[in-house]
Design a protein around this nucleic acid. Structure first.
Lengths: 213, 213
DNA sequence: AATGTTAAATTAACGTCGTTAATAAAATAA
DNA sequence: TTATTTTATTAACGACGTTAATTTAACATT
């Protein structure tokens, strides 16, 4: 039996040990292919120990994703410094898509898997905090472009624009994750798909479509 | 023990009985919440009997989805009669989205769940047949619009346009299915999201954006 | 230093799942 | 009537998430 954890510091250390083990299995195999027993075995603890640190499997995976999406949002901060709002939107979408395609397990768990109606108690990302939440970042930059009257005059709901842009990028990414390896689909190049989605959407939303190439 | 099935006709009848039972559970609960044992119980057979009619659970669910997506494509045939290609695209997208949102379990299984690389042997929908395959229907009408030179001159790949349009609609639908009930998201109206997606994409793709309202 | 108490780990167990092997029973053929 | 074949059944396997019961290590008290 391993030495017991008493101090709050050591406890946090074991917690992140579990998170790391879960992450590695979570990343290399798909998602539900990772079992509590296997995570525990990897760190040489019994499976039930995990339940002293996480309420259940879903909470564990949620914690993994929370941490990594926090890292994503943090990595986006320099993009948020780009002065031109349109370029900022484009860079943000590209960064978001890149993360999604490089972390398909994470992305699937976060955005492609229906949950019970309320997860507020599990996730620890403070919603609406631009520093932390990737969605809020897109929200902020779209609002900036909206305030600068860059969007079509008949589009009067900034939130609707945000969600449309998100849905567009999400559509490309999630299709790639779910069906990207299907033989019967003759996919065009994923970068081309992403580019055209951004290009077409912005052209269709902006007051001056010619600004987008 | 129920009477045994010998004739090919009765065999097909029991097969569809299984399919119907699976469909009903599949529709009312989510997706993986339906077990083989429960399907069997509903039709008063033992669980192992199902394996005489379907290779495994995935094949059963795939058969359910195949049948219903065939029905979808069939129901789209009148839409395919609309003369104007642009209106045809719009109607097709609306019909597709309507089906997706009314059959979230089907949709999730078909388009939001990664599979092993090869499912060709399971699905019985003949790919490329406009009558049967919803994707091929979109492909056909986009090709028509492409041939009529309705898209921007710099867009030279019709397949890329198809996949972008699909990804857009899929993005809205799949986000709604996966996260539509999340409390922390303040979703705008789903119809507005769908409309704006189609509107913006077509405006961004077409040579004459003003044709789209 | 010996004892008791608390907290953290363990093993055992429950119920469920998809699926396969072994078996019983019904229909058909001889 | 018996033998054969097909179709269903029950039993069982291994894995899963999770909870209950139990052991064990660390700390506190005398």
């Amino acid at each position: 039996m391993p030495p017991k954890i008493k101090s709050e510091q050591d406890r946090e250390q074991l917690r992140t040990l579990i998170l790391d083990a879960a992450r590695s299995l979570f990343v290399e195999r798909g998602i539900e292919a990772v079992s509590m027993r296997e995570i525990a075995k990897q760190i040489k603890y019994s499976a039930t120990t995990l339940y002293n640190y996480f309420q259940d499997k879903e909470a564990l995976l949620q914690a993994v994703c929370d941490a990594d999406f926090l890292a994503l949002a943090s990595g986006m901060r320099e993009i948020m410094q780009i002065p031109d709002p349109i370029q900022r939107i484009q860079a943000l979408c590209r960064g978001y898509a890149k993360f999604a395609l490089h972390h398909p397990g994470h992305y699937r768990f976060m955005f492609m898997t229906p949950r019970g109606p309320c997860n507020m108690d599990i996730t620890h990302i403070e919603q609406g905090n631009t520093e932390q939440d990737a969605y809020a970042q897109l929200q902020a930059v779209v609002q900036a472009a909206f305030d600068a009257e860059l969007f079509r005059a008949d589009l009067n709901d900034s939130e609707l624009i945000v969600q449309t842009l998100w849905a567009g990028v999400h559509g490309v990414c999630s299709l790639q994750i779910a069906l990207g390896n299907e033989i019967w689909m003759q996919w065009t190049d994923i970068d081309a798909r992403l580019s055209l989605m951004q290009n077409a959407l912005l052209r269709g939303l902006l007051r001056q479509p010619d600004r987008i190439f």
